[in-house]
Design a protein around this nucleic acid. Sequence first.
RNA 1: GGUGGGUUACUCAAGUGGCCAACGAGGGCGGAUUGUAAAUCCGCUGACUACGUCUUCGAAGGUUCGAAUCCUUCACCCACCA
Length: 406
Amino acid sequence: MSMSNSSNIKIALDEISRGTAEIIDMERIENLVTKFYETGETYTVKAGFDPTGADLHVGHAVLFHKLSVFQKHGAIIQLLIGDFTATIGDPTGKSETRKVLDRETIVANAQTYQDQLFLLLDESKTEVVWNATWLEKLGARGMVELTTTYNVARMLERDDFEKRYKSGQSISISEFIYPLLQGYDSVALKSDIEIGGTDQKFNLLMGRHLQRVYNVGKEQAVLMMPILEGLDGVQKMSKSLNNYIGITDTPKDIYGKTLSISDELMWRYYDLLSENSLEEIEKIKNDVANGDLHPKKAKENLALELTARFYNEESAMMAKSEFDNVFKSNKIPTDIEEFEMEEGIWICKALVDAKIEPSTSQARRDIKQGGVRVNQEKVSDDKLNLTSGEYTLQVGKRKFAKVKVK
RNA sequence: GGUGGGUUACUCAAGUGGCCAACGAGGGCGGAUUGUAAAUCCGCUGACUACGUCUUCGAAGGUUCGAAUCCUUCACCCACCA
């Protein structure tokens, strides 16, 4: 028994530390996991979310995936919704004070978050908590007490504060309070471990500090995940850079976008997102390296896995066959949007109306360059008018529309 | 509060009276190649049924035959001083 336990524990710890950017107090995590395997005693892992935006992408999923790993090894996740702190605005990574959100938006965002999160997490091992619950009760006295635990000089050590202070940009006092409140959450929750992105280091460590000051009887271990690169492989995945895979993207998109990443980036995604064990990944890597496995195949598997994660096996397989149809055999996808148009419509106008071109100017250019097809045939005349009938319009490789001309 | 510098398209960044719809780079898009990968090569990149017209260079006015370029006011940013 102790033999199989110790190997289980080793596997668990390897999985937990996999892909992390930094772990503070690994020993504590080892003890917690060991205890779970020996006595069945669970422990808590806190992860906080500011319900400021609603849509999650695969970059966020790195964190959730790690949480789900923890759940397999005895953790109860404390899914902290920062409903109170969202009303303040965390300055992390921002060069200016974040705007404050109203209650309704926060609640709505939080709900959307949860819907998306439970695609990945085991709901029965998750505790959803709202920090307004205890922060509202803190009161002025408690608040002041909290501020006495830290000083301005140390607060200014935080990177973005330092930069802004030096360059003369404004820092509101409330922003100083933010890390304190986030840390206090760990006091209220008595968390054993907290996980977050590397950009959260200062705030995460504050949790340790405050747990000590408030005599919680433990200091949370901290596990930081790196920021995932987006589809371009360079910049971090974000919606504004449009290099993201959304968790709620269609199966087709998740599959397709995943296949579009570079081979190099694929390993990064494998490491941070795949359910494959470290051993299995090692094997895949070797097979690709010595030519036993085509890199494309490895990427397809990853794409299938991710698609299935957010939907199911079946949808993933469908996404794949659809994809193969369109791109391998140059067939037309099955689920193209349809439009009805008037007799004699100008081709450029039709492309715009079908939403596959942004302007008639762009449509003309694409026609000139041979990027537009009607019923699989290249169009060369940008003055073409469509007579009545049904057409499949195509721009480039991936934009399609079906058009019925009366 | 004082003095000087800045604000150009998705981003960075040239342009200081006509040759400017505005150099260049990145990004994006299209083509070739391919594994819808990467890399590479070529082309395009304000709008408009279009060899012409219209709207863009922080905002509003003005000077001029003509302005992104000159003048005035306003807004915002930066640097140095107080």
